[in-house]
Each structure stands twice: as C-alpha cells, then as structure tokens.
Computed example of a mutant assay.
Amino acid sequence: MIMHQIKVVQALVSGALEGGRGTNGTAHPKQPEKALKLYEFEGSPFCRRVREVMTTLNLDYEVYPCPKGGQRYRNEMKKIGGRRQFPFLVDENTGTQLYESQDIIHHLFKHYGNSGKTPKKYSHYPKIPALAFAGTLANGARGVWVNKKILERPAPEHLLELWGFEASPYTRIVRAELTELELPFKFHNVAKERWQDQGLAVLRLKPGKYSPLPGGKREQVLKVMGDNIQVPYLVDPNTGKALFESAEIIKYLRKQYAA
C-alpha cells in the first residue's frame, strides 16, 4: 500500500509539471463515428501531448500500447504505417494516418474541435518536450518498458475499457500498468466539464450529492458508474470484471494477465 501511495504522489507531481493539462474538457464532444486508434506508450512525452488534447476534446479512443521491448503492437503499427515512431494515430473517419504529435494535434482540433482551429496553447509545442519529459521521470518512468512476463502471451479477445482523464494521477498509474502489460483498451475520457467537477470524488469543491452538467458527457458516464463519477473505472469484458480503485485494478491486471 505504501508503494502504491508513492506511485500516486509521483503521478500527481507528473501532472503538476504539465500545469494540469489533460484535466478539463468540453461537455459536448464531437465523437467520431469510428473509434480513433492511437499507438503509443504511457511514458512517452510526445504521446502525452496527444493524450492531453484528447482529454481537452473529451474524445474516446482505442489505445494499442507499444512499450519499449514490446512486440505485439510495435510490429502491427510498422505494418500499417511503415515505421516505429510514436505516437501514431489512425483515423478511419478521414482516412488519415499520422505520426508527428503536433500534426496529430492539428488534425484532432480541425476535425473534432468546435472551431476547427488549434488554440495557441496547443499549436506551438517546443521541439524538446522538457516539462513532459520531466513528468515522465517524476512518474518513475512507468509505462515505458514492457513487462517481460507477458511477451509470449496473446492479446485478450476483447479490448478492456478504462474511464478516466489524462491528468488523473490514479488513472495514470493504471494506464502505465496497461502499457507494460501490452493490454489494448478503449479509453473513455471523463474530463472535468465545469468548476463543480473539480477535486477528488469525495472532496469536490461543491459538496453534497454529485450532479453532472445536464446534457454533458458526464451525465452519460454517470449511467455507467452509478450514483457518482469516480476514476479510474475498469471494465474487462473478457472476464466480466468491473473495478474502481486503482490499487485493486492493478492487483487484478497483474493476477489476470501477468501471473
């Protein structure tokens, strides 16, 4: 438990170094008809930029983890795109395949943003992602290397499903574990839509029973989770398992897919 809390603190510092990007998002996303597919790994600072924008736009997408030393999706993406470079976005709605993080960001705002234009804060990232790289180090470089215990295992039949948002420290820990285990999953962004959403599930700025923004995405998410919004939330359709707490999720993933 102590080690898990250390991981939480490291993930929290990692998010703080990026100025809280990947926390807030639109309540009314332009969700693509066909799922966006992102080949990436949690510890990459360039991939992190794209994930932050995905949360800002509150988009759901499929993740195919490509940790260093992994074979499953690194080989697959090379067959599709021709090289191993991350992140790699496949958008079947527009027939687009993109590698460079800045190009991906422009594409996302153009097709799924409200104005079709990339905001200035997202249009000129530095070539060397110093803050994001520092965030990766602060997070203990988790989500970078493959767990060698799973190299000979086939991928699960169905994508796991994870609800969270980029800057959530608890969600970050789970995403790192999914990356290291090369477990593909569908990520459902649950971005903060207004000031009443800020804070942990039990410590929100607005006390009392949680009430989502009417007509917002969180209102739909609440139907999945029950009487409150809490992330991370994992559903494994391969086993029928559904879990909330990050420590319990990691324990389950290791027992089910790495033991």
Rank of each mutant, 00 (worst) to 15 (best):
A141H: 12
R153S: 14
L159W: 05
T118L: 03
A134P: 03
P126D: 08
I173S: 02
A132R: 04
I150H: 09
V174I: 09
G164P: 11
A141P: 06
L151W: 11
A130D: 11
K127D: 14
G164W: 06
L183F: 05
Y170F: 15
P169S: 08
W145S: 13
R175K: 14
E161R: 15
E177R: 15
P119F: 09
V146N: 00
G135D: 07
L160G: 12
I173V: 14
R142S: 11
A138T: 01
E157V: 07
L183P: 06
V146E: 00
G164F: 00
E157N: 13
T179P: 06
K127A: 11
F133N: 15
K149G: 06
Y112I: 07
L178Y: 01
F133V: 10
K117P: 04
L178T: 04
E157H: 02
A130P: 00
S123V: 04
E177C: 15
G143W: 07
Y112G: 01
V174P: 11
N139F: 13
K120L: 13
T179F: 01
G113T: 09
L178G: 05
V174L: 02
E177Y: 08
P156N: 09
E182W: 02
L178W: 02
A141Y: 12
L162K: 04
A132I: 01
R142D: 08
E182A: 09
E182D: 09
G113M: 03
T118G: 08
A138C: 08
P126S: 08
Y112L: 02
K121F: 05
R175L: 05
N147H: 11
L151V: 10
G140R: 03
S115I: 00
L162D: 10
T171C: 12
Y122M: 06
A176F: 00
V174R: 06
K148H: 13
I128M: 14
S115Y: 05
L131N: 13
H158L: 11
S115Q: 05
S115R: 05
G135V: 05
R175I: 01
V144F: 14
G143A: 04
L178A: 03
P156E: 01
E180K: 00
E180R: 08
H158G: 00
H124M: 06
F133E: 12
P119Q: 09
